[in-house]
Every structure is written in C-alpha cells, then in structure tokens.
Amino acid sequence: METKILTPQQIATAAKLIQAGQLVAFPTETVYGLGADATNPTAVKQVYAAKGRPSDNPLIVHVSDIAMVQQYAAVIPPVAQQLMEQFWPGSLTIILPVKPGSLDRVVTGGLTTVAFRLPANEVTRALIRQAGVPLVGPSANTSGKPSPTTAQHVAHDLNGKIAAIVDDGPTKVGVESTVIDLSTSHPAILRPGAITKAQLATIVGDLNVDHHHVDAKETPKAPGMKYTHYSPKATVIQVADTDWNLVREQVANDATVGILAFDRQVAAFTALKTYSLGTDVTSASARLFAGLRYFDDLPEIKTIYVATVPVTGLGAAYMNRLNKSAGGQWFKK
C-alpha cells in the first residue's frame, strides 16, 4: 500500500478515504492520531492491526462538536457539559457511559463507557465534519513506541500500512490529552495532560488521580494505564536537576550515551549526541517524544539520560510520559 502525504488543503481526499474504511493519520495539538471511522468495526480493527495494539486497549473517539457526542453518549451530565464548554476544543478527553448499541465493542474495549475528545486542530475538525463520522484516534505510531509529533514520525512507523497522513506540521503540546472519567460517582483523572488537575477542579471540585495498576485480566478505561508506552530501543534514565554534574563526570566521553535535556544542561556535553528540550516545561513537553525518536534512529546510542521537571501543572503530564518511557529508572549517584 502506498501511504499518501496530504496537505491540509486535501481534507476532502482524506475524508473520502475515511468513508471508504481506510486509515488516515491526522494532526492534533497533542500528537498525531491514527484515524478510522468509529462507526465501522472493520476499519477500527485495522487500526489495532496497523499499530500492533492490544485489542483490550480502548480508543478515544474524536468529534467535531458536542452534538456528535450526544449521538453516542448515554448521558452528558451537567459537569461534563461545563467541561466541554470550558476546555473544548482542546486537550481534554472525557469518559462517559456509552449509549447501548451506538458503538461496537472494538471501540470501547468491551466496556460500557467511551472516551470523547474535541481536538483543537481545525484541520482535523474539518476532516471529521467532511467525513460525517467520529474518528477513533490512538497515537499514530507502532504500539509502545514514542508518540508521533510530526507527519514524518508517523511515516517512519506506519508507511505502507495506512492510506494517508495529513501533514499539518509539528504538534504544539506534544503530550497526549488529559483523560477524566465522569462515568462514576466520583470523577478521576486517568491520564495527566495539558489541562491540569487545578484547572479541572475549578469546575469538578475535588477529584482523584487514578494511579492504580491495571492487572492482566482488567480492561483499562483509558490508554496508557496498562501497557508499555513511549519506549525507544535505548535505555532511558531520568535525571534530577541536581545530578547533571555527576552524569557529566560519568559519561562525558561515552559515545553510546545520548543527552535529552534543557539548553542549560546540554551545553556541558560537547562530546556527546544531544537533543535540546528548550528552556521550560512547555517546550520540553512539545519536544520529549521527538527527542526520544531522534536517538532511536542512532543505533550507537544505548542509553538516553533525560531531564526531569517538578510534578506540577504540565510537569505532571511530562513526568508521567517520561517515567513510563524509562520504566521508572533514575540516575543513581
């Protein structure tokens, strides 16, 4: 199969491919998603196959407006309506009870809930409108690998496996959306993202952050709760801000080491391969996956030392992805 690269001006072509049951990668403000008609179980199954994604990992349904949610959600409680009005379009995914019979179990992972998102990227909203159906949209990468933040990342993983990629340039946020579960009596954040707990609390009030381990027999309610994610081939090591001098002393001339850190930190590693995270947590979140992928394409790199940030605000999302990528490993003094 030839994977076409489409421009934002070729949305009509992408929409026809979706209507024909084909897979099309699309841009969002977070990461690129792998799109298929959410109402077509055969097309959705192809998403799992193309990614190598476990079938019990439910998919987020991307919509073009709130009216589209009403077609598939059994109920939209007032708090959900308020969150949609405040944070949509944007980096927030909301889990609601699914209307019986409206979506196949291949979309929901067999659960009685479904996750909805209205992305901030206008190109993708236009694609959904023209296709006339909601799109499933897991990250457009090989399952378990760092998420794609450019069309080139998508092509690296899925070229020849999908019909097309809509190229709208690099994503702006760089980490996947916040996921909030409103299907139970007490709301809970299942995945941190750019919309923070503090922001959500202004509407929801007190809410949990669900850190529980999803066991082998349990179906996760949201992506990222059960399976390995964001992992390059090299070993990833998290480095506290105060430990970079020790890292430099240990690996200053080791050509098998890559440094993924802030400008002020990479400047000290003149003899090694480096990739800058920029100057703050916003740029770091936007560049984290691109940096991991950069080193993934360098076969000599066996270990990547990566800068950490405080676990507050957007930093909670950054550290969630980094910690999963590192398998919890930290630099040891």
Rank of each mutant, 00 (worst) to 15 (best):
K4V: 13
K4I: 13
L6F: 06
P8T: 09
Q9D: 15
A12H: 08
A14R: 02
K16D: 05
Q19Y: 07
L23Y: 00
E29N: 06
T30F: 02
T30K: 02
D37Q: 08
A38R: 10
A38D: 15
N40P: 13
N40V: 10
P41G: 14
A50L: 09
A50W: 05
P54Y: 11
D56Q: 11
P58S: 08
S64E: 07
M68K: 00
Q70G: 10
A74V: 05
A74P: 00
P78N: 04
P78L: 02
V79T: 06
A80T: 03
A80K: 04
Q81W: 02
Q82P: 01
L83W: 06
L83S: 05
E85T: 08
W88H: 04
P89W: 09
G90W: 02
S91N: 07
L92A: 07
I94E: 08
I95S: 06
K99T: 14
D104S: 15
V106R: 11
T113V: 06
A115V: 05
L118S: 03
P119K: 03
E122I: 04
R125W: 00
L127W: 03
R129E: 01
V136A: 06
S139V: 03
A151D: 11
Q152G: 14
V154C: 13
L158E: 09
N159L: 14
G160T: 10
A163T: 12
A163M: 12
A163R: 14
A164D: 10
V166R: 03
V175F: 15
E176T: 09
V179Y: 08
L182Q: 14
T184D: 07
P187M: 11
I189Y: 03
I189K: 06
I189A: 07
I195C: 01
A201Y: 00
D206E: 03
L207G: 01
H211Y: 05
H212S: 12
V214F: 09
A216Y: 08
E218Y: 02
A222F: 12
A222H: 12
A222P: 07
K226N: 14
K226T: 11
Y230P: 09
A234K: 13
Q238E: 05
D243S: 08
R248N: 03
E249V: 00
N253K: 00
A255K: 04
V257F: 00
I259A: 05
I259D: 01
I259P: 00
A261W: 02
A261E: 01
A271H: 15
A271R: 14
L272T: 11
S276K: 12
D280M: 09
V281M: 08
A284R: 06
A290V: 03
A290E: 12
G291L: 05
Y294W: 01
K302C: 07
Y305I: 07
T308L: 11
V311I: 13
T312S: 14
T312G: 08
G315Y: 10
N320T: 14
N320E: 14
R321E: 15
K324D: 13
K324F: 13
A326F: 15
F331I: 10
K332H: 15
K332T: 14
